[in-house]
């Protein structure tokens, strides 16, 4: 009869679909990078950042927030609560983190930008969030952040909030 199928071929489908489940992981990251979904911020080299035109007429308010996840042993927060910035110009600020326990710990800050639409325009040339941060017992440290807002930021946005959540990264492989 026509339409007969060789049974082993049918087993190929679940194998492929199992792989597809894992393929969704990079696809999801790619989609987040393209759309700025999830507040994933962009990064940019210093050379590129200095090529941007500075928009002297426009001021955008950037707010900084720091949160400690769960019960991780940190005190963490921004040095200043907010800044007024010109798009296209580089600014430096920092966050302060303190290890509150008497042992060496590793932390990882994860950024998120609101509104989500602004995320792809928020570029960092230097950030403590690029790497895991190791702290000596009871160490307190200022961690710098250099950023530039792309002048292409939509006109409707006049405030951008940058939020970091500090996670306990002990035992995790660096991303």
């Amino acid at each position: 009869m026509s339409g007969r199928i060789k049974v082993p071929y049918l087993f190929v489908i679940p194998v492929l679909m199992f792989g597809f489940g894992y393929l969704m992981v990079p696809l999801y990251d790619l989609l987040c990078d393209i759309t700025g979904l999830n507040g994933k911020t962009g990064s940019i080299s210093i050379a590129e950042a200095s090529q941007l035109d500075v928009d002297q007429d426009r001021l955008v308010k950037v707010e900084f927030l720091g949160t400690v996840n769960d019960e991780a042993p940190w005190e963490f927060g921004p040095e200043v609560g907010s800044m007024m910035v010109h798009p296209g110009k580089q600014y430096q600020t920092s966050f302060v983190a303190t290890n509150t326990v008497n042992e060496t710990v590793v932390g990882q800050a994860i950024p998120s930008v609101a509104p989500g639409k602004a995320a792809t325009y928020f570029n960092k040339t230097e950030c403590f969030c690029f790497n895991q941060q190791t702290f000596e017992p009871l160490e307190s440290r200022e961690m710098p952040l250099v950023f530039v807002i792309d002048p292409g930021l939509p006109e409707s946005i006049d405030t951008v909030s940058l939020s970091y959540t500090f996670f306990d990264a002990n035992g995790l492989v660096s991303k």
Partner: peptide, 24 residues
């Protein structure tokens, strides 16, 4: 198989230090 993949990721996240669903 996609469900099997998802729960396997949960398993490796919990026991083998992967970070499929771990923001840190």
């Amino acid at each position: 198989p996609v469900l099997a993949g998802a729960v396997t990721m949960l398993l490796t996240d919990k026991f083998f230090g992967t970070s499929f669903f771990n923001a840190a």
